[in-house]
Design a protein around this nucleic acid. Sequence first.
DNA 1: AATGAATGAGGGTTCATTCAT
DNA 2: AATGAATGAACCCTCATTCAT
Lengths: 194, 194, 194, 194
Amino acid sequence: MTTREEQKNQTRSKILKCAFEVFSKNGFAAPTLDIAKAAGVSHGTIFVHFSTKEDLIIQLVRNFSFKLRSTIIVPLSSPKGIENFLINYMDVIQKNEQFYIRLIGEKDLLPDEARLMFLNLQLSNARSFATIVKLQRNSMKLKNIPSTMMFNTWIGLVHYYLLNKDLFSPKGSVIKKYRDELISTYLELIRVQD
Amino acid sequence: MTTREEQKNQTRSKILKCAFEVFSKNGFAAPTLDIAKAAGVSHGTIFVHFSTKEDLIIQLVRNFSFKLRSTIIVPLSSPKGIENFLINYMDVIQKNEQFYIRLIGEKDLLPDEARLMFLNLQLSNARSFATIVKLQRNSMKLKNIPSTMMFNTWIGLVHYYLLNKDLFSPKGSVIKKYRDELISTYLELIRVQD
Amino acid sequence: MTTREEQKNQTRSKILKCAFEVFSKNGFAAPTLDIAKAAGVSHGTIFVHFSTKEDLIIQLVRNFSFKLRSTIIVPLSSPKGIENFLINYMDVIQKNEQFYIRLIGEKDLLPDEARLMFLNLQLSNARSFATIVKLQRNSMKLKNIPSTMMFNTWIGLVHYYLLNKDLFSPKGSVIKKYRDELISTYLELIRVQD
Amino acid sequence: MTTREEQKNQTRSKILKCAFEVFSKNGFAAPTLDIAKAAGVSHGTIFVHFSTKEDLIIQLVRNFSFKLRSTIIVPLSSPKGIENFLINYMDVIQKNEQFYIRLIGEKDLLPDEARLMFLNLQLSNARSFATIVKLQRNSMKLKNIPSTMMFNTWIGLVHYYLLNKDLFSPKGSVIKKYRDELISTYLELIRVQD
DNA sequence: AATGAATGAGGGTTCATTCAT
DNA sequence: AATGAATGAACCCTCATTCAT
């Protein structure tokens, strides 16, 4: 790669990184100028690398989805498969809590393509979860509920806490604060008592 | 009431009604001009009745909260208290599904006062639910979970379906489509098997 | 005069009175609605009596000029003619200081007709003053200066204090506070020492 | 300075220049759009260079004050100190007569900061004048009047002519026309006859 | 590749004036 | 005569996007 290309890639990365931070903090309605300032580049440079603001958001969500996909480990057969999945899930989200909250909270501001990508990520997670649940049914009595529903209950609970962060944990991370309670509550709900 | 006042109230109501529809359809970022057009009045007329766009939204949310509050019946002591509550809850939401979705999905665009009113409504519902749960514990074995968590699981599940309406039910009402499944799933989760 | 006409005149007077107060306090850019509120009449009523806001202002200035004209006494031949004139002048202005300040300070907001009327008033005063000065020259040595200039110096000094009221007397009346100092200074300036 | 910066400065200067002219001609209530048109730039460009209309006015008054301050020469000890001061004063004002008239006539439309700056300029002039008067008392018999009053009489006289420009000199410069008469009148007033 | 000044289509809000009642 | 709801032109300001350098 030539020096020129390296330079270009660095600028692009810097913009992506700062856009991620600015959008996380101020939402997707944040002006592109703010991103340029944060990245230390000119306003126009953003549009050299991304044809529109929408395009920038798409790339951002693409990267984010990719990162999440690679981080979410799916421990298939295991006596604690579900619990491990939940713990891992929380850990992954916590790392980018703010951005994740924006994604689920400002869904309608997203370009179609971005919305679709994030949706696919969730579907993929749902499928992984379904697989784990199926395997786990052997070693643990679980409520007789479709695995889709089991996943939706879980993600619904988590998203509820995330979207109401200012209510549950105005300062620090919601996930950090409620991680254990959410997991234990959920596990308690899905298991069948002896 | 004189004809004059009636006329005025009609205009005001028309604006409120159209604002409700426009915001439901396009979100709270929709231009006030769109509302004026929908209501068949001039742009300025909106500001005759509502000092600012924020004020308009506040009135809208106030009315909405009031309507919801008066509609949500709380059947206290009853063998099917919880189920009745859930059924009623779904019915109430279904009637104004779109607007409700905007409220939970664009929380950050709301004026503080509106956000607070809607929050209070939810807290009030949470309290009602807690009361019902406590009473129900006599006649039905329930999972050993704090009633707050029980409520949050329920509302998290419902909101998840609402916020992803385009996924679950792009055309018609999400609630109508999933009402029974959501209720039965939830009831199955919280009860203790014999 | 029929009762109806009386009623009409009363409303008209009330509007004029309140317009005078509102304009005095907030300047001629004050909304007509404020005047209607102050007068306890509907917004439209103003335009029943005055075709435009400009017309209202014109009537106001007409009345004001008339009142001032009738109040300014011109003590012709007298050993203290000038001093008496100045004292009287200050008294008259002081009574409607606020409005007077608006007239000289927002001259450009006035309709042409109003500006002209106020101008005529000043010219009339200038003439009166000139007459007095001429008579006084017999009993008192005065600077050898055209009487126009003598008047302009005086009125310039007074207007300067009025226009900078917030500097000289932010709370109370400027004239009240500086009346004597202004008069004595001026008299000292125009007389010839022995 | 790069060509780019030059270009920017030119635009900025052009806006300032045209704003100066438009405000001079139509007063500070003139729409920013008029300024944009006069400067041959788009409406938005104004707000690229000045965050608000108020900011634009502040810069304008700042520049103006600075220019005046640097132009007003204070010939301290001199047998003709006062006269020189007056002559210089008139010359300086004459150069920007229209704008100066707006400043004193629409004081209340100015942003606080601008009003304060202009006020300071006048105070500074008053002080300079006081110093000169003190020195002059040696070589010339002056009326026994506080120097504040002497200054206020002068500035009051000048401002009176400026504010009534349409009366005294509707077409050309008031100052040009009355400069000598104002100065000689004033000098005649303040001196003590032998 | 990067710059950043310039653009211009909106957006919310104000207010003198009109007119049906 | 009085009402006051309705009008709509005008204003200030924002911001994604363009383009000459």
